[in-house]
Design a protein around this nucleic acid. Structure first.
Lengths: 278, 278
DNA sequence: GTCCAAATGGAATAAATCTTCCATATCGGG
DNA sequence: CCCGATATGGAAGATTTATTCCATTTGGAC
């Protein structure tokens, strides 16, 4: 009765827990079970809508081998594993078809179908963010901001929502941070002291005020992190790290979903680093 | 042999074709089959991962009734219909899931894996937004704001990013809008004049300032639209329309992805309505 | 090369799920 | 109110799908 490699093991309770376990045991599996693991990793989305026969054929093994694989993962069998994927699917699948028929019925400019379009654009922006994210640059940015005395944030127009949200979040996590160019401020260079750092958020077409503030800070030796929507951002040369978050458009409009997600991640990472340092 | 209402009918070959047929015959179906149609329209995404027993229970009918419903749609049975949904699902290939799990693997507290988690949460928030969005309330909100003289926006703390972004967007589209409770303002009731409308954005735990401003406005007959993260928002009774955008958390943190998406949709819808009116 | 433990393939069995059938109930027209 | 047509519920049967079992193969240690 070798139900799993470790007989005391329990079944994963979520897909991400499963993937974690998969990674952990991946190297230790025998050939056929390894094929299953490999196939699963690359076709994870098929599990909810396939049979063991389908999946085992895809992996190039016998159904019984796939069965043993499920048990090695800690499940009682395939059905239990599939139930996990189906549950996750039920909860989080966009109802695109419903939306399509909504469009057919209601016409293209109903606010709800507009919202569906923006939501879809948001999905794409997030996928793109994850696929193109520069890990090194993000880690670097987190380090620099964690080492800084005060974190200065600047961003105008579309970028202001990003910095204000980040300012609030950092403040709530007791990280010293100030948002610049608000409340009728014209100049705020003097508030940026040696040992501080600046995060400049600017999207095309770039606000001259933001660029100038960042450039002056860089000239004084203040480390600058830039968050923009293209790699061709004018700050690319003065910034210690350039983070890029590109948004998909709906008509001429964009929701800064990816930028906000990236900024929030950065803020949380910075706060974590600061805490672990105290 | 009454396989379907029209014996010459052929099975739909895509989900949208199916929905079209569903709309066409919806009114003509007997009671139980009507229940099936209604349930299907609202839970179309469940078909791929459910059994007839599940679906018929959901619709409140016997499995045999659901069977007859499938046949009325032109399918030979449930399995044929389900195959359609499974096929469509297999094709929608989120190729980023692989990437996402790679990121997650790279250590739990690296900024990049944090970003991956937030991105994943964002996807879920958007899916949830689309699936639970109250079309009627959104359309109502757009109407009211389009009819208003000036649109007043209020939202503090986490909600401020939403209103500031919306304020910028409305302004860019030449819609009269002002953001309240900024720049050290204490009172701003007097700026809200008859014929105007107020959009209040507030998330649990609700800012008293926002609630009070909204309540006072409502008492004066100003129409109030509320945007919140639950249907239990304290403004639910005073608001003409309550919009709900719930965000998935990562640890204790949230990115207001869904709220921002909804707010942007609303702003664009309002601007469109105003333009078509001029 | 031999032996043992582990892995594998394939077929037999068990379980679940789909589908049909028919007795009963409901509805509408005359 | 009666009758025929249609709709319905429930359970039995057919089919698909999951799971287990075991004979055979493989791979590695000595």
């Amino acid at each position: 009765m070798t139900r799993s490699l470790d007989p005391a093991i329990q079944a994963p309770e979520s897909v991400s827990e499963l993937l974690e376990r998969l990674d952990r045991i991946a190297g230790t599996l025998p050939k056929r079970l390894g094929q299953c693991a490999d196939f699963l990793r690359h076709n994870i989305h098929l599990v909810a809508v396939s049979t063991v026969a389908d999946l085992s054929a895809g992996a190039g093994v016998q159904p019984s081998a796939f069965m043993r694989f499920c048990q090695a993962l800690g499940f009682s069998g395939f059905s239990e594993m599939q139930a996990l994927f189906r549950a996750e699917y039920r909860e989080f699948r966009p109802d695109y078809s419903e939306r399509l028929s909504q469009l057919r019925r209601g016409g293209d400019d109903s606010p709800a179908s507009l919202a569906a379009s923006f939501a879809e654009a948001g999905h794409k922006s997030l996928v793109n963010l994850v696929n193109t994210l520069d890990h090194r640059a993000l880690a670097r940015a987190a380090e620099i901001l964690a080492d800084a005395g005060t974190i200065h944030l600047v961003g105008l127009r579309r970028a202001f929502a990003i910095v204000s949200s980040m300012g609030y979040l950092l403040d709530k996590m007791t990280v010293p941070a100030v948002v610049h160019r608000t409340f009728g401020q014209i100049e705020s260079d003097h508030a940026i002291r040696s040992g501080d750092a600046l995060l400049a958020v600017t999207f095309a077409p770039y606000s001259p005020e933001t660029l100038e503030l960042a450039i002056r800070a860089a000239e004084r030796g203040i480390p600058v992190i830039a968050l923009s929507d293209t790699a061709e951002c004018p700050l690319r040369d003065v910034a210690e790290a350039l983070l890029v978050a590109r948004e998909m458009e709906v008509g001429a409009f964009r929701v800064p979903t990816a930028a906000l997600t990236l900024a929030t991640s950065l803020a949380v990472a910075v706060a974590q680093r600061r805490e672990s340092r105290d």
